[in-house]
């Protein structure tokens, strides 16, 4: 879900995804960099992402990932699920 969210704003390479999550969570969430790649590949096979080789800002060859329309829809449903879950957990914890 986090990866999909990271790519919602535009195409990124793997390092970019890690940085984005790290930055957006105000350094709270530390992405396991190694595990990131199998995850990206799996999402790609499932058709939620497509990958393209492009040139990075420092002029190196890099693999950029981009959301597909299926990926976008998937993110949307995940987001709703998460919101509900978070709210529910919030209620439970607040009740204590």
């Amino acid at each position: 879900m986090l990866i999909l969210r990271a790519l919602e704003t535009g195409a990124l390479h793997g390092y970019g995804v890690a940085e984005w999550i790290h930055g957006r969570s105000h350094d709270v969430l530390q992405v396991d960099e190694g595990a990131l790649y199998p995850a990206l590949h799996r999402l790609e096979i499932r058709g939620l992402l497509i990958a393209e080789w492009g040139t990075s800002e420092n002029n190196r060859k890099a693999k950029y990932y981009q959301l597909t329309s299926t990926g976008r829809r998937h993110l949307q449903s995940e987001r709703e699920r998460w919101t509900r879950l978070a709210a529910a957990v919030g209620f439970v914890m607040a009740g204590a």
């Binding site: 390479h13 793997g14 390092y15 890099a62 693999k63």
Partner: peptide, 26 residues
């Protein structure tokens, strides 16, 4: 996955490139 059986060398190279790029940025 089936395609992976035949394009093993190319896949391998791409994978190496991608991870290499990540490490370089890091």
């Amino acid at each position: 996955r089936a395609a992976g059986l035949f394009r093993r060398r190319q896949r391998e190279q791409e994978l190496a490139d991608e991870l290499e790029f990540h490490l370089a940025l890091k």
